[in-house]
Design a protein around this nucleic acid. Structure first.
Lengths: 235, 235
DNA sequence: TAGTGGTCTAGACCACGGT
DNA sequence: CCGTGGTCTAGACCACTAG
């Protein structure tokens, strides 16, 4: 392993944090102490700490030290990935309708291309729960064009995107979304277990993929009263 | 002005970029050249360049140099970006309350740090219009700590972020947001010109900045019935 | 006062890019 | 080959925090 020195120090410290050897609130060895321990100069020690700082593992306080902090995380549903990653592992998804080839619906959040419309589409519908509470209704469409071999069962880890990636080597390369606040109507309110007319979040999505002509179209309806949609962005 | 040396160099280079003396695609003077020009060492020169790099003004290429690039301005993410893209230039912002130092409110979307709470905060409130229609109510807070010289009038191009960048050299480095659908209550409904109880979008925000300890806290209330919040993401 | 992080100097060697 | 940025050493002085 031909790594830079500061990268090595960074790895060592990061591992210890992740293993809990330095717990939240603890102070790392001081920069001067790191210099002595690893026979490096402060430039190198600071470069390693800078990396940890940038990634949110520590905070530095002048005159005190480098303190391990609770790592902020959460990718946004709105920036990239799927819901499972955005909310966490205590979510489960239940199929209301399993993936099935059928005609395109009359209305979609964004207009599919002619190429996509030339063939039928797959459609599936899921309800996501946090614990026992239904929180999100999800409908998805995508063209069968070039996806004739798509088999409908067994999503990897309950995740459509992971399935696309691991079984079909298709990656998400971009997304377009529109977000609205709307009244929950009959069926949606029923499924989410809330009163008709409650405010819910509607997210209309189009995902672009690494497969030519393949886009994923979808609507999400979220009951955000208890679990808002989170979004985190960092340069 | 008692500033650090690398901060001065950073300031000089950034100004020249913003003035167009270094245009997009141009290379900045090499690190060694900066050392000679300003009688500094490479540590200092690199620290200045690191800042510009982190803020997205330049890209560095090993063996070539530091190149000025088109500044990525992805920051309002769901807020400003979505709006300017979705509705174009017909947006204007009207102050309901101009920036004024005052006590922190009881409740904020995210908890400010102790350092920030030690000092009063600035608060301002704006209503954004598309044409004659009010579509978004915006409230912002940030600590006066280190911002004692913030003068309240004259936002550059109506933009708070542009003002921070160009007048105070402060860049947005990240954001955290929570999005909810809520009922419009009295004052908010009035200002947005909609019926009480209408579903609206509430976005709670915390922006991180390049200035230590400075965060921008805010709430947005959006009437999305006609103009949804748009979001575009590309890998 | 002792220890911490923040800044800075004055060098050095290396890896990369283009001539 | 030369100039570029990437890494690193071995110091130094300062400002901040806490006992």
């Amino acid at each position: 392993m031909a790594d830079t020195r500061y990268r090595q120090i960074y790895h060592i410290l990061k591992s210890r944090i992740q293993q809990g050897l330095y717990a939240t609130g603890d102070f790392l060895p001081s920069e001067h102490e790191l210099c002595r321990s690893y026979s490096i100069t402060r430039t190198t020690a600071r470069k390693a700490l800078d990396e940890l700082l940038r990634e949110g593992f520590i905070e530095k306080q002048h005159g005190k030290g480098s303190q391990v902090v609770e790592r902020r995380q959460s990718l946004g549903l709105l920036t990239v990935k799927g819901f499972s990653e955005a909310v966490g592992p205590y979510v489960r998804a239940v199929f209301l309708e399993r993936p099935l080839a059928q005609n395109w619906p009359d209305e979609l959040p964004f207009a599919p291309s002619a190429k996509e419309l030339e063939h039928p589409c797959y459609f599936f519908k899921r309800l996501r729960y946090v614990g026992d509470e239904p929180v999100m209704l999800e409908s998805n469409w995508f063209s069968t064009f070039g996806m004739e071999d798509f088999h409908q069962e067994g999503f990897v880890d309950d995740s459509f995107f992971k399935t696309l990636s691991q079984k079909y080597l298709i990656e998400i390369t971009g997304s377009e979304q529109e977000i609205r606040a709307v009244h929950a109507t009959g069926e949606i309110a029923d499924l989410l277990g809330i009163a008709g007319g409650s405010p819910i979040l509607q997210i209309s999505i189009r995902f672009a993929t690494s497969k030519p002509h393949l886009h994923i179209y979808g609507y999400l309806y979220c009951n955000t009263s208890k679990y808002p949609i989170g979004n985190f962005y960092k340069h």
